[in-house]
Amino acid sequence: MFKNKDRYLSFLLVLPSILAVMIFIYGFIGWSIRVSLSKWKGLTPNFEWAGLKNYIDLFSDPRFMVDIRNTVIFTVVFVVGCIVVGFLLAVMLDQGLKGEAFFRTLFLFPMAISFIVTGVVWRWLMNPATGSRMSGLNLLFSYLNLDFLINNWHTTPTWGIAAVALAAIWQMSGYTMALYLAGLRSIPLELREAAQIDGASELQIYRYVILPILTPVTLSVLIILGHISLKVFDLIIAMAGKQLALDVPAIYMWQTTFDGLFYARGAAIATLLLISVAVLIVPYMWFTLRSEKQL
């Protein structure tokens, strides 16, 4: 009897947050999906049924094709770059060098600033101007007589988005390093010693002992960075403004909805974004929740 009332009370206590989440998250997701199936264009809501037309149109929309291409390039460069740089930094810090705390903080610092700041600073650094107006990295390369490195950065056709990913790698590789470092520190020394006694070289130890143990960390990194890169918006706005060569779905969604008043199309892009992130996150959450239950 007493136990039942306690459960009743606890349910009441979490009720407000359940309600808020239901309304402000799931309710609005449902509403966005409804809008994406409508013919709403212009300031006045119009819920006339359009079926999947908005989605079908998107997949023949040349701009959306550019967006998909850019997202794929950005995600691959960003995630692979962060994992490689982050892992190398973590391995170096793990060697027990002097001033480790200092370097750890140093590498983590970029994460503390917002993507907008990163974007503005890297836009200056990656200034593609030539001749007397040359500046930023290009100017540095020119001083160092490394002229072959001078390039157009984010204004390069097709691959410009990879330059934006460079800025993102700079920002997030410290975070990746922190995750890997925690993973490395949790590996018992005995394992390395055992491998050494078996005659494994340092490289083999990393390849056959440490990397396999770190697989769950890599998975987490993949998920965290992956969903950041699918939703990337602020970094690109700060670096490139509204230039279409660097367009991504989130920017298209924003522009078409609020500049062009194509509400239904914007909602369709939002829904596709949600689905792509969900495809990445849901199996991961399901997996972690299940393994937690087993413990």
């Binding site: 550019v66 279409l244 060569a245 522009q255 500049d259 008043l261 194509f262």
Partner: peptide
Amino acid sequence: NDSWKSEIDTALGLFVS
């Protein structure tokens, strides 16, 4: 109008690239 302008803007952006 805004919708028309934003479609022209998209077409122009694609043309520029």
